[in-house]
Amino acid sequence: MLKDVVFGQYYPAKSPVHRMDPRSKIVLLILYIVMIFIVKNFWGFLLTGGLLLATVFLSKVPLKSMLRSVKAIIFIILFTFIINIFFHKEDGAKILWDVWLIRNVTDKSLYYAIFMALRLLLLVLGSSILTLTTTPVSLTDGIESLLKPLSYIKFPVHELALIMSIALRFIPTLMEETERIIAAQKARGADFESGNLFKRAKALLPVLIPLITSAFRRAEELGDAMDARCYNGSKNRTKYKKLKFSLVDLFGTVLSLTVLAGVILCNLYLGATI
């Protein structure tokens, strides 16, 4: 049950998307996000959506896993949709519905709401493609490599990457621990499902306190273990896995740039919805 909460989990498969250099995947994701935000009409979404679908298809990640990450934010999407459809005001809009509870719904606000919902949806799906096809380790490797230039101004890039990978590494462990503690407290009659919000929050204390103490204990143990092996992130540290820009990356970049050009053309010549 808790496992669904994790935002995008790595899906092991052999695909061109999995093979891509994490650095190019991150950069292309940023490019993709930029595209989604500069899109002005539905034609642009057709293109970016096409890019997304092509990537999903190439990555061999089943749609089911993709949709799981949408499930986590479906509420936010619905919420923005509803807010937009009722409160988006624009000049010259034609009123579609204005009866009973459904007030002030215009054609413009309807378009706008659909537009925003699509934008959020594409955003989440695109990001989850990254986390679904990249292991956390290579993801942090990529981020570290991308942030490298910052180390010239004494920014602790390696340490930051290390913190990130440790944090990512411990998410499943702590998740498991949480489930175990919940089971243990349930066995002692703890009830997490009934009562009002305040009562439920209070019922979580017997879970949170052991969880936090165990997180500290693990942190200490890990620190000791790293110390015992003389770990340090000094300059001459080499990497086990070298990142390499290869043909797939080139292909991905060309494809994304083409779509970007397409989006810009759509914006220029096909009018704007918003």
Binding site: A184, A187, R188, L205, P206, V207, P210
Partner: peptide, 21 residues
């Protein structure tokens, strides 16, 4: 279920990690 859990006590592995109070 509550009654059952009362009659069937369960001590998990490393039960000391469930102490909280």
């Amino acid at each position: 279920l509550k009654n059952l859990r009362r009659s069937v006590g369960m001590v998990f592995q490393y039960p000391e990690y469930q102490l909280f109070a």
